[in-house]
Amino acid sequence: MTKRAAGRAADGLRLAVTTLTVLPVRGGRVDRPTAAVAMGLAPLVGALLGLTVAGLAGGLRVLGAPALVAAGVAVAAGALLTRGLHLDGLADTVDALGSYRSGPAALEIMKKPDIGPFGVVALAVTVLIQAAAIAAVPWWAIVAAWTTGRLAITLACRRGVPPARPEGLGAMVASTVPTPAVLLAVALVAAAAVPAAPDRPWLGPVGVAVAGCAVLVLLRHCVRRLGGITGDVLGACVELATTVMLITVTLG
């Protein structure tokens, strides 16, 4: 790896961490090539978040907390570690899509600071399912779910997916990740998900595949209704993929 490539990789990792977490990491270069690296490394950041969430849930269980209480605290901690941006993006995206408006009218709904009834229901259901699932699955399944959630960002930023606006996070990261990098990320996350269900090693990779398909369906709908992706859409993709993965590993 050349010095320039190493610098680009370091800048991309810093951008991924500062964009997807609250960690106070010193920023570096911010441009579309760096964004491509950052969005490609999003699953790695997801794995680190997943380890933290799983460790907190497991630690509380060791201290005697009921499983659902530990899971609820873990979900709350996961939201705090990401500034709640992904949950906020989920609510805004669901409100916009639920309005049955398209284009600029739908994007204007996403900009509003309040949350409508569709968004409230989406948040409540998502948090409830995630907490219930965390209470029932092994710790590596939690790591795999948070990793899969950030893999959704890599999928959403693949080449060919346009931004909905000419400015903002969506415009900077949209269509930056080349297809080979996306396929490599999917393969690595699927392989890492094998231990998520120790007695059913096929279930983890299936969960990654199902979550990926759900994200692709959401993306297609957002491109049709909104014209492309926004930062809010990325957040919705994260929460959708995380939740679908958690549901899948509870089956069987």
Rank of each mutant, 00 (worst) to 15 (best):
M1G: 15
T2L: 14
K3Q: 14
A5D: 15
A6H: 13
A10L: 15
A16H: 11
L20A: 10
V25F: 12
D31T: 05
T34S: 11
A36S: 15
G40K: 09
V53S: 02
A54S: 07
G55C: 08
G55V: 06
L56K: 06
A57H: 13
G58D: 08
L60T: 08
L60Q: 08
R61L: 14
L63E: 02
A65E: 07
A67P: 03
L68R: 11
L68H: 12
A70W: 12
A77L: 15
G78L: 07
T82S: 13
G84W: 12
L87D: 05
G89A: 12
A91G: 04
V94Q: 02
D95F: 09
A96Q: 04
G103E: 08
G103N: 09
P104V: 11
A106Q: 01
E108Y: 11
I109Q: 00
K111G: 10
K112N: 04
I115K: 02
I115L: 05
G116E: 00
P117N: 10
L128R: 03
I129M: 02
A131P: 00
I134T: 01
A136T: 07
R150L: 12
R150A: 02
L151W: 08
T154K: 13
C157P: 03
P163E: 05
P166Q: 13
P166S: 15
A171H: 06
S175K: 03
L183N: 00
A185F: 02
A191L: 15
V194I: 15
D199W: 13
L203G: 01
G204Y: 06
C213G: 13
L216K: 07
V217K: 07
V217C: 04
R220I: 03
R224S: 14
L234Y: 03
A236C: 08
C237V: 10
C237S: 11
E239R: 11
M245T: 10
I247D: 01
T248H: 05
V249K: 04
